[in-house]
Amino acid sequence: APLAMRPIEESAYDAAYFLADAVIISGKHTGFETPLEDLKKVRGVLPEYPIMVGSGMNKANAGKIFEVASGAFVGSTFKIDGDSYKSIDSDRVKDFMKVIKEIRNR
């Protein structure tokens, strides 16, 4: 949850100003997609700053996310059925990484 109720781009700018290594933008909960619009707002005020996605990245949205974000933390998308309480599914990891490699080769 936000530390203060104010526009996300203001909070992100403050984090950069106070020398955070990166800004992390997340969805509402673990596994919930990070709103692309939030990423774009932050990128607008921090055009060269590392912006990380903290939740909800998957094969379907990776291309759009990496048009804006610098990187991502990925967890539940690797789990059986995408459930963060279940074990890692190696096939899901392999499928996801195929998509990431395609994005990197563009």
Rank of each mutant, 00 (worst) to 15 (best):
Val45Met: 04
Val45Cys: 01
Arg104Gln: 14
Lys41Ile: 01
Glu37Lys: 04
Met97Asp: 02
Ala1Glu: 13
Gly82Lys: 07
Ser76Trp: 07
Pro2Gln: 04
Ala15Ser: 02
Phe78Glu: 15
Ser70Lys: 06
Arg6Cys: 12
Lys98Met: 07
Thr77Tyr: 14
Lys40Ala: 10
Leu19Glu: 11
Asp14Glu: 15
Ala22Asn: 10
Pro7Leu: 07
Pro35Leu: 03
Ile100Cys: 04
Tyr13Phe: 12
Leu39Ser: 06
Asp83Pro: 08
Ala22His: 04
Ala15Gly: 01
Arg106Val: 02
Asn58Thr: 09
Val74Leu: 11
Asn61Cys: 11
His29Glu: 14
Gly75Glu: 01
Asn58Ile: 02
Val45Gln: 00
Arg43Ser: 06
Ser70His: 12
Tyr13Gln: 00
Asp21His: 12
Arg6Asp: 10
Ala1Ser: 13
Glu67Asp: 13
Gly71Met: 08
Lys98Cys: 01
Ile24Arg: 02
Val53Gly: 04
Lys28Asn: 11
Lys79Cys: 11
Phe32Glu: 12
Val74Cys: 13
Ile8Cys: 08
Ser90Asp: 06
Tyr49Asn: 01
Asn61Met: 12
Ile51Thr: 12
Gly54Pro: 15
Ser55Thr: 13
Asp81Gly: 14
Tyr85Ser: 11
Arg104Thr: 02
Gly31Val: 03
Val53Cys: 07
Lys41Asn: 06
Glu102Asp: 09
Lys98Gln: 10
Thr30Gln: 06
Glu102Ser: 05
Leu36Arg: 03
Leu19Asn: 14
Pro7Asn: 15
Met97His: 08
Val93Met: 10
Gly63Glu: 15
Lys79Gln: 05
Leu3Pro: 01
Val74Asp: 11
Ala62Met: 11
Glu102Pro: 02
Asn61His: 11
Lys59Pro: 07
Ala60Asn: 14
Thr30Arg: 09
Asp14Leu: 15
Thr34Ser: 00
Asp89Thr: 05
Met5Asn: 12
Val68Pro: 02
Tyr85Lys: 13
Ile80Gly: 04
Ala22Asp: 02
Ala12Val: 00
Ser84His: 08
Ser11Thr: 13
Met97Lys: 12
Glu10Trp: 09
Arg92Cys: 08
Asp91Ser: 15
Val68Met: 03
Leu3Asn: 06
Leu19Tyr: 11
Arg43Asp: 05
Pro50Lys: 07
Gly56Asp: 04
Val99Glu: 06
Asp89His: 06
Ile25Asn: 00
Gly54Val: 11
Arg104Ile: 05
Asp38Glu: 04
Lys64Trp: 02
Lys28Glu: 15
Ile100Thr: 09
Glu102Gln: 12
Arg43Gln: 09
Ser26Met: 08
Ser90Ala: 10
Ile51Val: 15
Glu67Pro: 10
Leu36Cys: 01
Ala22Glu: 05
Pro35Cys: 01
Glu102Cys: 03
Gly63Thr: 10
Lys94Ile: 12
Thr34Ala: 04
Glu48Tyr: 06
Lys64Ser: 14
Val53Trp: 03
Asp21Thr: 13
Glu67Gln: 15
Asp91Phe: 07
Asp21Leu: 09
Asp95Ile: 00
Ala72Lys: 03
Ala16Leu: 10
Pro47Phe: 09
Asn61Leu: 12
Glu9Tyr: 01
Ile8Arg: 07
Val42Trp: 00
Met52Thr: 08
Pro2Asn: 05
Tyr17Val: 11
